[in-house]
Amino acid sequence: MAVDDRRIHCRTAMSAKVKVTHESLGEFTFSTRDISDGGVFIVVDDEPFAPQMGDKVDVQVQGLPVPAPVLKMMVVRKTVDGYGLQFDESAD
């Protein structure tokens, strides 16, 4: 693990469609790149989605035979191709 890598959860590559809803930016559908016990990375590409660090979003996996639960998440990381979202434990 790199010295500046603060992740405590192992990431697993996983591509799934997720609906991401932001209070002021609206609703978007993105693909995931990886998932861990702590959160998920969404690939944004050229979508006009530009949340601030710490913003809260609702995330729901799409394409399942039954509706998936809506999970409360927080924006914790930005890269050139997307955002890292962390499960928001304060939302319980």
Rank of each mutant, 00 (worst) to 15 (best):
Asp81Thr: 11
Asp88Arg: 03
Gly82Ala: 04
Cys10His: 15
Ser90Asp: 13
Asp5Gly: 00
His9Asp: 11
Phe41Asn: 01
Val20Lys: 00
Asp4Met: 10
Lys78Glu: 11
Asp58Trp: 09
Pro48Leu: 04
Ala13Cys: 04
Asp37His: 08
Lys19Leu: 04
Lys72Ala: 12
Phe30Cys: 02
Val43Cys: 09
Val40Ile: 15
Val76Phe: 09
Phe87Ala: 00
Arg11Trp: 12
Lys56Glu: 14
His9Gln: 08
Phe49Val: 02
Arg6Val: 15
Pro65Glu: 02
Arg11Gly: 05
Ala13Pro: 08
Asp5Glu: 12
Ser15Trp: 06
His22Asn: 11
Val44Ala: 11
Gln62Leu: 01
Leu25Tyr: 12
Asp58His: 03
Phe41Tyr: 12
Val40Leu: 14
Val70Ala: 04
Thr79Tyr: 09
Val59Trp: 03
Leu64Gln: 10
Pro51Trp: 08
Gly63Trp: 01
Gly63Asn: 00
Val76Ser: 03
Asp81Glu: 06
Ile8Trp: 04
Gly26Met: 06
Val40His: 06
Gly26Thr: 05
Asp92Phe: 10
Val20Asp: 00
Gln86Val: 08
Met73Cys: 07
Glu47Gly: 00
Arg6Ala: 14
Val40Asn: 02
Lys17Phe: 06
Ser90Tyr: 07
Asp5His: 05
Gly26Phe: 12
Val61His: 02
Val80Ser: 13
Phe49Leu: 06
Ala16Leu: 13
Glu27Asp: 15
Asp88Gly: 00
Lys72His: 13
Gly54Arg: 09
Val70Tyr: 07
Cys10Tyr: 14
Val59Asp: 02
Glu89Asp: 13
Val44Leu: 05
Cys10Ser: 14
Val18Ile: 02
Ala2Glu: 08
Thr32Val: 01
Thr79Gln: 13
Pro65Lys: 03
Met74Phe: 03
Val44Ile: 11
Asp46Trp: 07
Gln62Val: 04
Ala16Thr: 00
Ala2Phe: 03
Val18Phe: 00
Asp45Leu: 08
Lys72Asn: 08
Val75His: 11
Leu25Asn: 05
Val43Phe: 11
Gln86Arg: 14
Val80Trp: 07
Val76Tyr: 09
Leu25Thr: 11
Ile8Ser: 13
Glu47Lys: 13
Gly54His: 04
Ile35Phe: 06
Gln52Arg: 12
Val3Arg: 03
Asp5Pro: 01
Lys17Met: 04
Met53Val: 09
Asp45Asn: 11
Pro69Ser: 06
Ser31Glu: 10
Leu25Met: 10
Met53Phe: 14
Met53Trp: 10
Ser90Val: 09
Lys19Gly: 06
Asp34Gly: 05
Ser36Val: 15
Ser15Met: 14
Arg7Lys: 12
Pro65Leu: 03
Val20Trp: 01
Leu64Cys: 02
Thr79Trp: 10
Ala50Ser: 12
Asp34Phe: 05
Ile42Val: 06
Val80Glu: 15
Val75Cys: 06
Gly38Ser: 05
Ala91Asn: 02
Ser36Glu: 10
Val20Pro: 01
Arg33Gly: 12
Met73Tyr: 05
Ser36Cys: 13
Met74Trp: 03
Val66Ala: 15
Pro48Gly: 04
Thr12Lys: 15
Lys78Arg: 10
Ser15Arg: 14
Met14Trp: 07
Gly84Ala: 00
Lys72Met: 07
Met53Thr: 08
Lys72Glu: 05
Asp55Thr: 01
Leu25Ser: 07
Asp46Thr: 11
Tyr83Val: 02
Val3Lys: 02
Arg11Thr: 08
Glu27Ser: 14
